[in-house]
């Protein structure tokens, strides 16, 4: 199928071509630079004359390969796989923490603004790969949420500026915070200055949760909120399995383990209570199975060593 040519303006782009070009945006920019024009030419040659809408087969192929190319690009950085996976894991913990801080503001109708600022700054520092900024914030956050366990609830109740900050009353609940702090310490100690900045899309999660709470009245801890969270976690773990298969890199399994294992640990520690609820038991069992599947695939495929590809 040939393109129409207009004098002095090159080929006139048909609606089909414009739609295929929009689909190509799924690919990383570097891939589009290398093959974009060629792919469009081939797509137009394979299309039947008069067609205006991309074929479902080609659309599915472009989406799958575009996402795979993005995943492969993520493994091409000079960062070692374990440092990259650790970075992603601690970022996920920071984002989830920010989600809970936002939910506390809406649900409790009160806020500790220094705590909100610290939580946002920690997430942003990890998002941009600024470890030396994240280090004091991660350690400080771990101490703040542990204050009742470290100093007693009464002694810490009136801490200036932090009286409404998140606090936990069991060590098992504090595992994610100390895991996050330890992860940031390890990354900072090995001077991972080359850590790549992560996508701003990670901030969509706290923003969407906050908007859902404030505008739609969907509480994070309600049945609908819990189902949404479980669906998102399951979807992301399935995506992680696919990405691990495509890239042959264990970094995604490490990041998933950092997020899932503290919850599994907490569940095992309180097993009799967990087993009383079939839904809760099924939820943690599904997360465990998905994590194990990802770890198994990561162990079966080529481990990326050396340059950390």
């Amino acid at each position: 199928m040939s393109a129409e040519v207009t004098a002095g303006h090159g080929p006139r782009r048909s609606p089909l071509e414009r739609r295929y070009e929009a689909l190509l945006r799924i690919y990383p920019a570097a891939f589009r630079d290398r093959h974009g024009a060629d792919i469009i030419g081939t797509l137009m040659e394979t299309s039947t004359p008069g067609r205006r809408v991309p074929s479902p087969r080609e659309t599915a192929s472009l989406i799958r390969e575009g996402l795979a190319a993005r995943a492969r690009q993520a493994t091409e950085s000079p960062v070692r796989w374990w440092a990259d996976g650790l970075h992603l894991g601690v970022l996920i913990l920071a984002v989830v923490h920010l989600v809970h801080v936002g939910a506390d503001i809406v649900l409790q109708g009160r806020s500790s603004w220094p705590w909100v600022a610290v939580s946002m700054a920690l997430t942003l520092a990890l998002l941009r790969g600024r470890l030396w900024a994240a280090l004091p914030l991660a350690l400080g956050s771990a101490f703040v949420v542990s204050r009742a366990m470290l100093f007693g609830y009464a002694a810490s109740a009136d801490w200036p500026l932090l009286s409404n900050a998140t606090v936990y009353h069991s060590w098992i609940s504090l595992t994610p915070y100390w895991l996050m702090a330890a992860g940031v310490v390890v990354l900072a100690a090995r001077r991972s200055r080359e850590l790549q900045p992560r996508s701003w899309w990670w901030l969509a999660l706290p923003v969407a949760t906050f908007a859902g709470d404030a505008l739609l009245g969907v509480d994070l801890y309600s049945e609908l909120g819990s189902l949404g969270r479980a669906g998102l976690e399951g979807g992301l773990l399935l995506a992680g399995i696919w990405v691990t298969t495509v890239t042959r890199s264990p970094r995604w399994a490490l990041a998933a383990a950092i997020y899932v294992l503290p919850g599994e640990l907490s569940t095992i520690a309180d097993l009799p209570q967990t087993l009383k609820s079939p839904m809760v038991t099924a939820y943690w069992a599904v997360l465990a199975v998905l994590l194990l599947a990802m770890a198994w695939i990561a162990s079966r495929v080529r481990t990326d060593t050396g340059s950390g590809a």
């Binding site: 891939f31 290398r34 093959h35 060629d38 792919i39 081939t42 797509l43 394979t46 087969r57 080609e58 599915a60 192929s61 472009l62 989406i63 799958r64 390969e65 575009g66 795979a68 190319a69």
Partner: peptide, 11 residues
């Protein structure tokens, strides 16, 4: 071969 599959393989 779908076009996306082809160029993923060619790359």
């Amino acid at each position: 071969l779908a076009v996306g599959t082809l160029y993923g393989a060619l790359d």
